[in-house]
Design a protein around this nucleic acid. Structure first.
Lengths: 234, 234
DNA sequence: CTCATATTCAAAGGAATGTTTGACAATAGA
DNA sequence: TCTATTGTCAAACATTCCTTTGAATATGAG
């Protein structure tokens, strides 16, 4: 192998690894990370994304295009709106791996999560498999505390939709003889924490699902859509 | 919830997701990506890393420290040398997820890999499970074409060490009645490709393991270290 | 103690990135 | 065709990042 081809190997190798780095770079911004977490819930229009991450539409469009350029998100046009979504489940796996490694190794993130989610010491969690067992034995009431549109797009079978702001109103209709388990968008979603705190304050036994709906779906759990009738407490 | 606390929520949320982004940012550089791939093979001193990625020691130290700051790599001191390693296996999982998503979605990376690895159309691969079966039935000869130090640090049981530059010399000692399977550092490692090309040119039946040693190890495959005697063809 | 080796630090220039602003394109409905 | 809506593009500024250079630190050997 000549020196020339060795140099060629080096530039080609650089370019290849720069390709991997480009995908990492697409996730290397807090707002884009939020977008990925958000789109894991389902597709969204540019405006709804902009709203959720509290940024201008132009800036959000910029971020979305950067994610699209490396293939992390894809688009669908419907009338005047363009909907963005994660390209496939592997993208979510990548995001979950990033989330795992970060929470495990970056000490700061614990502190940050604490600032965002508040004191979690009173909030106990339940794993997906344990939840499944308890549901089968009818030992728990499962509530979905995400906004209603997300519940309609897909939820864990048997879950009762309790939008974040309706908990107090609907609470009297929840059975009192069983533990209540709340879930929402993922381990860093505030809704489930808030719901559990409220329930505990009202003297109910409550826990939160360890992670959230996308993880349930991704791990092969059954999913129910809202065209089918749900057990609603109304 | 007051406006003030909503703003507080927003800045706390920003900070949390900036934390995830910081870890992604640590991987968002081609040279640092190479470092992760390299350290997946085992620990290395700063100088050896610098050598492998073709960068100055100061710059390499800089990159390594950035990776260490977010917890992706850890250090160990031995006399005057400082050895860097991936903090744990989850870091490798994250890297593998990034590699997977990239190759699947970033069209460019195919072209880049082609420039780096050459035409792979003649090189067929074998999966880990298929390899395991064939080894049990004694239907294949397995060769480890990584540098000898890496073989000594750990290799697939039964593999014969054939350093990249020694293949022609040792080839006559390999059995001719069975297929030869080569493996090295991973799917983007050049050694196995080169070995298979050489073997095919000499008229031998040869394939490469689909990925490489770290994937074998990570998926729970048995590992042999070189204090034990190996089946050497000398 | 002094020297050699291995690694890190600090500063500086140039490149790339993030956000904002205002203008531009594409579509649907009248 | 005209208008309203939705989303993208282009330019500009401030910020951050990458690399290089030369000096500084820490360890072990003599």
């Amino acid at each position: 192998m000549t020196t020339q081809s060795t140099i060629g190997q080096r530039t080609a190798k650089n370019a290849l690894f720069d390709g991997f780095a480009a995908v990492a770079g697409a996730m290397a911004n807090g707002r884009r990370a939020e977008i990925i977490e958000l789109l894991a819930q389902g597709e969204r229009s540019v405006e709804r994304v902009a709203d959720a991450i509290d940024q201008s539409v132009a800036n959000t469009s910029h971020h979305l295009r950067r994610l699209a350029r490396v293939g992390l998100v894809s688009t669908r046009r419907d009338r005047t709106r363009i909907y963005y979504r994660l390209t496939d489940e592997r993208v979510y796996d990548l995001w979950a791996a990033l989330r795992d490694v970060t929470t495990r190794h970056l000490d700061d993130v614990d502190r940050l999560a604490h600032a965002y989610l508040g004191d979690r010491s009173e909030i106990t969690t339940i794993t997906r498999s344990e939840l499944q067992e308890r549901l089968q034995r009818d030992e728990a009431t499962l509530i979905d505390v995400r906004p209603r549109t997300e519940y309609d797009a897909g939820h864990i079978p048997g879950a009762i939709p309790i939008p974040p702001d309706k908990l107090d109103e609907l609470l009297p209709q929840l059975p009192t003889d069983r533990e209540i388990v709340a879930y929402c968008r993922g381990p860093y979603c505030v809704y489930a924490d808030q719901a559990v705190r409220t329930l505990l304050a009202r003297g109910r036994a409550a826990r939160r699902l360890e992670d959230g709906y996308p993880e349930w779906q991704r791990s092969g759990g059954l999913v129910e859509k809202s065209s089918a009738h749900h057990r609603s407490p109304t």
